[in-house]
């Protein structure tokens, strides 16, 4: 593990130690401070304890949640919108103010799934098209990445042979792959999918390999005494033991995929959200671009949370005893 981990900036410790967002920090904080005290046993309930009367019920918890998790970001967003409005208020402003965006792009904001013509469809449809590409590209990257990571993690020879190549290839920016994949596939859609694949695969490979190198010798000994075959070892020991690392890789990978798809679609055209931005730029619909940016941000956030959530469920109980 040591070789890989030391010179590998993408490697984070298992899922929990990912750089957390401000939101999750706040969340963790409230979980510690806002946690209701355990209910007092029945026998002492009659004596008035200082906390006894303050046992929060569901409604109070909801209010508390509003106060800690909803109101602060809401206030900040409102303040930013206000500043933005003031900054772009003048008619000569190069960027649209929020009120102008609302006036120009109300249909995009309010109805994500309208269909008014072949190229005039709601952003929801466009996001779904992009998500479909990401699903295929990222899905392939997950499967191939875990398999290659397992190989590199298990075999010293594969590690020596492949690791230098991985280290070089993973630094190639996603879009640099696009021309060569267009040449190879002669079609925009598979090329975009390939760009996703090649972008997302490296953190999956590297984290899986580190996770597998970190499998304690004890588990390997158990497997050997039981004479587990390769396949049994993979499913019964390797996957559960390395799962926290794998999900760290997958989480980084999905983020990179979403970064890459928008850029790739700008160049390949079609129906995706990336092309929509490029198209809007070419026809000077700046308000549409801003709305699209918000869509991209929200979807990226949801994707990240989704993988984190799946990881949390899948690795329950995997944490070392």
């Amino acid at each position: 593990m040591q070789h890989l981990a030391v010179r590998e900036p993408l490697v984070a410790t298992p899922a929990g130690a990912l750089p957390s967002t401000v939101a999750s920090l706040v969340e963790a904080d409230t979980r510690m401070t806002g946690k209701p005290k355990p209910a007092a046993p029945a026998t002492v309930a009659s004596t008035v304890s200082p906390t006894g009367d303050l046992r929060p019920n569901a409604a109070m918890r909801f209010v508390q949640w509003l106060g800690t998790d909803v109101v602060p970001p809401l206030l900040v967003v409102l303040a930013l919108l206000l500043i933005w409005e003031l900054a772009c208020a003048s008619p000569q402003s190069s960027l649209p103010a929020p009120t102008k965006i609302w006036a120009e792009a109300k249909d995009l904001i309010l109805d994500p799934f309208f269909v008014a013509g072949p190229q005039d469809i709601g952003l929801g449809w466009r996001v779904l098209t992009s998500l479909q590409r990401v699903a295929i590209g990222f899905g392939l990257a997950a499967i191939v990445g875990i398999a290659l990571g397992a190989l590199v993690g298990q075999s010293q020879w594969a590690m020596r042979g492949l690791d230098p190549i991985f280290q070089v290839l993973r630094t190639v920016p996603p879009l640099a792959w696009l021309p060569i994949s267009l040449a190879a596939f002669r079609d925009a859609n598979p090329s975009a999918i390939f760009v996703i694949f090649i972008t997302a695969i490296w953190p999956v490979i590297i984290n899986t390999a580190v996770g597998i190198r970190n499998i304690p010798q004890d588990y390997r000994n158990v497997a050997q005494v039981l004479r587990l075959n390769q396949l049994e070892f993979f499913w019964r020991i390797m996957v559960p033991a390395a799962a926290p690392y794998m999900f760290t890789g997958l989480r980084i990978g999905i983020g990179l995929s979403w970064l890459a798809i928008v850029a790739a679609e700008m160049l390949t055209g079609g129906v995706g959200i990336g092309f929509f931005i490029w198209d809007a730029w070419n026809s000077s619909r700046l308000s549409d671009i801003v709305v699209a940016l918000v869509y991209i941000g929200v979807v990226g956030f949801v994707l990240d949370r989704l993988v984190a959530w799946v990881g949390q469920i899948a690795t329950r109980g995997t944490a070392a005893s």
Partner: peptide, 11 residues
């Protein structure tokens, strides 16, 4: 083998 550190699989 009964290993010194039990070596149970935690999952």
């Amino acid at each position: 083998v009964v290993f010194q550190n039990h070596s149970l699989l935690p999952w």
